[in-house]
Design a protein around this nucleic acid. Structure first.
Lengths: 209, 209
DNA sequence: ACCTGAACACCGTTCAAGT
DNA sequence: ACCTGAACACCGTTCAAGT
């Protein structure tokens, strides 16, 4: 709320610098984009020296890892809120809308979450955990629409399929690869692609004898 | 083939520096990843001053734009080669395999192609053109499996759906978000997700009366 | 026309020193 | 324990000067 005024001289020790840095990074992220988020700019915005962050995070990667973890936690929560008791299609549509809406509301964060900085196996525990939690939420939805156990083979396969679809659509929309990506509603994209899948499913299923 | 030996003093003018820079950038890209590809490192590898590139490209963004354009052109070619005259499912499977195989063979390039550097509308013509050409190839495949005209509404919707699916799957595999992403074959991922969609389609279609 | 070198404004990161 | 300042090795980019 308040502007990030210069820290007064007597507040040499901050006490809660880590969360302040994360908050500043979060807003800066959406301002400058995922590739141009710099530790120095974050520190300056908080009003602290350029190297202060190193007493709370190992390096830039650990800072943005926490940002990404935060993003997955919020995505999981959004999916949970989207719980729908309608038909199978209603559940899939509801979840897809919640997913796409979260990403379009936090485009830079979403790009960061699936960005190239976290490809290797050296993920911090928080990121690994929240990522799994978000995917777990998706699996729960799929299990319900299929009416099968959470750990069944069908649910695992269908969950990866559903995640591929909604992540792919989201990614294309956010990066502006779809014509009119800016002007159209979440419902527009989700409903049209769902119709597209239905058409493909009919053409791909072997003719019923 | 040959090592990028130091340019001899008499070759002050190179003549074809632009393609040399692109070639060096392409190999460096896969070595260091899409975010850490630096103009200076590319120039050094070619054996030219750090600022020479600015006589052939406006800036770093234009250089990597050409790289991305190259990537989309190769992706389009790969999809074209994957032409399959089998059933609808065969066509979708063949195209998906070609797509995923291209991306897994050029992971950093694929990440660059869909990276955050090209979100705005200021795309260079080459990139816009090749991107459209690649998507056109995908549309052609979808039109054939649906048995409908290239510009029909069904084909447009199903094409975005298909692109969402395969881009999403590819992205998840490449970024290592899927368990065992490294060890499994292209066929494994494509066949399993295709089965997953089939299961979802059955649960989502309204009960046949 | 094509390339270089010095210069500027940035980065991430380290380390000794301050409070 | 927590933070700063100077320092190092990098960046992208500009601009005057060299060939």
């Amino acid at each position: 709320m308040a502007k990030p005024a210069k820290r007064s001289r007597d507040a040499y020790h901050v006490g809660n610098l880590a969360p302040q840095l994360l908050a500043a990074a979060r807003t800066l992220l959406e301002e400058v984009g995922p590739t141009k988020l710099s530790l120095r700019a974050v520190s300056e915005r908080v009003g602290v020296s350029a190297t202060a962050a190193y007493h709370h995070f190992q390096n830039r990667n650990e800072l943005i890892s926490h940002l990404a973890a935060q993003g997955f936690a919020e995505l999981a929560a959004a999916l949970q809120r989207a719980y729908s008791s309608g038909s199978g299609l209603d559940k899939v549509r509801g979840g897809s809308l919640a997913y796409l809406h979260f990403a379009r509301s936090n485009p830079a964060l979403y790009q960061l979450m699936f960005g190239p900085e976290f490809t290797d196996e050296t993920l911090i525990p928080a990121l690994q955990r929240e990522r799994l939690a978000a995917f777990g939420e998706l699996k729960r939805m799929v299990a319900e629409t299929l009416g099968q156990a959470l750990d069944s083979s069908d649910v695992r396969k269908a969950s990866v399929a559903a995640w591929s679809y909604i992540h792919g659509l989201t990614s294309l929309v956010i990066h502006g690869l779809l014509p009119g990506a800016a002007g159209n509603s979440d419902e527009h994209f989700v409903d049209r692609t769902l119709e597209g899948f239905a058409a493909l499913a009919i053409s791909c299923s072997p003719p019923i004898k």
